[in-house]
């Protein structure tokens, strides 16, 4: 138990966990409370199941994408097209499932999931293939596909909002026994994807290849790694998470349009970076990405809960991103110093 605690405290994400906890506690203390009209109980304005799950739900859609984006960023790239992939995957899912006509609910859900994930995967494949095939920097390629893919979504949807069949919404909004207008599914999917992301990055061959690729392309070449496969792979992962987020988002809100997730790419990258991913590659974590997304949403939520002027939201978020990254750099440096001390100790002991 003690070693577990020490591992948590020593881990890369420890600082971020602390910040999230501090913001949560502060918000709870400052939020004030109201009396529930039905039960007569005193309820904290922030620390109540409704607000908490709502906050987690808000975070979940782009936290899922931020995990994919983190994989790309660890590999030294960037994916600006995730918002557009989300829109295209959502629109394609809604259109195709509707076109397929009424089916039993299970088939509908599987078909919807297959379509949105498939579209996301294909878009990621396109990004990866363009980066590898043309030898153009991911920033440029995904800047291009960002507009292309949203344009395709715009054309195929004829700029209309398309309703998503009911069975899909039923899944995304399944109460899972909670009731009372609480919808925990997006939050649970976010947690599941985070776990898969953590395992993928730290325990699989592909994940470790991604770190090496982003840490040094040249050294990875000399170590015989399949460079093109890694490069394409990270964009596929990113596309896939965008497709999954689209399935969840479109189902949850009941409709899909080409304007969905506009500007999400920046939230997603912000979450990844706040979560400790380094844009120069070789560093980042899936848990960090989720915590980063949570932190951004918490800050947004705090403006609402504390009845601050909503017009300041962007300014606050912008500052928070810079502060978070600077704090992360400090703690990394502090960790390096800690390490150097133990290194010096072990040296003198030897």
């Amino acid at each position: 138990m003690r070693t577990l605690a020490r591992r948590l405290l020593g881990s890369q994400e420890a600082g971020l966990v602390l910040v999230v906890a501090v913001v949560t506690v502060t918000l709870t203390l400052l939020a004030g409370s109201h009396v529930d009209r039905r039960t007569g109980e005193l309820i904290n304005n922030f620390w109540n199941s409704n607000t908490l799950i709502q906050t987690a739900t808000d975070a979940s859609f782009f936290a899922i994408m931020a995990i994919g984006a983190t994989v790309v960023i660890i590999a030294g790239g960037i994916d600006l097209s995730v918002g557009s992939i989300y829109a295209l995957a959502g629109v394609a899912m809604a259109l195709l499932v509707r076109a397929a006509g009424p089916m039993d609910p299970v088939t509908t859900v599987l078909l919807g999931l297959g379509i949105s994930a498939g579209v996301g995967l294909l878009c990621g494949l396109l990004n990866g293939a363009l980066v590898v095939g043309l030898g153009v920097h991911p920033f440029i390629v995904t800047l291009g596909t960002m507009w292309m893919l949203r344009g395709i979504a715009f054309v195929v949807s004829r700029a209309e909002s398309i309703l998503v069949p009911q069975p899909l919404t039923a899944v995304a909004k399944a109460p899972l026994g909670l009731g009372g207008g609480l919808y925990p599914v997006p939050m649970l999917v976010m947690l599941a994807v985070t776990m898969v992301g953590v395992l993928y990055l730290t325990r699989t061959v592909m994940g470790r290849h991604v770190f090496a690729f982003g840490g040094s392309l040249e050294a990875s070449r000399f170590a015989g790694l399949p460079l093109n496969r890694i490069q394409i792979g990270v964009f596929v992962v990113s596309g896939l998470t965008a497709g999954l987020a689209a399935f969840l988002g479109a189902s949850f809100y009941g409709s899909a349009s080409s304007g969905d997730a506009q500007g999400y790419e920046l939230y997603v990258i912000a979450a990844a970076v706040v979560g400790g991913a380094s844009l120069s590659g070789g560093k980042g974590s899936a848990l960090g990405a989720t915590l980063g997304a949570l932190l951004i949403v918490l800050i947004r939520q705090s403006i609402r809960t504390l009845h601050l002027d909503q017009n300041y939201e962007w300014i606050v978020i912008g500052c928070a991103i810079i502060v978070a990254v600077v704090v992360d750099q400090w703690s990394t440096r502090a960790a390096a110093r800690r390490f150097s001390r133990t290194a010096a100790l072990s040296k003198s002991a030897a």
Partner: peptide, 20 residues
């Protein structure tokens, strides 16, 4: 530049080509 991934540990650098 060519031999090592400097962002990684000694362990990870040792096993890099034989992870599979």
């Amino acid at each position: 530049r060519q031999g090592l991934v400097l962002t990684e540990s000694g362990l990870h650098n040792t096993s890099l080509p034989i992870l599979r």
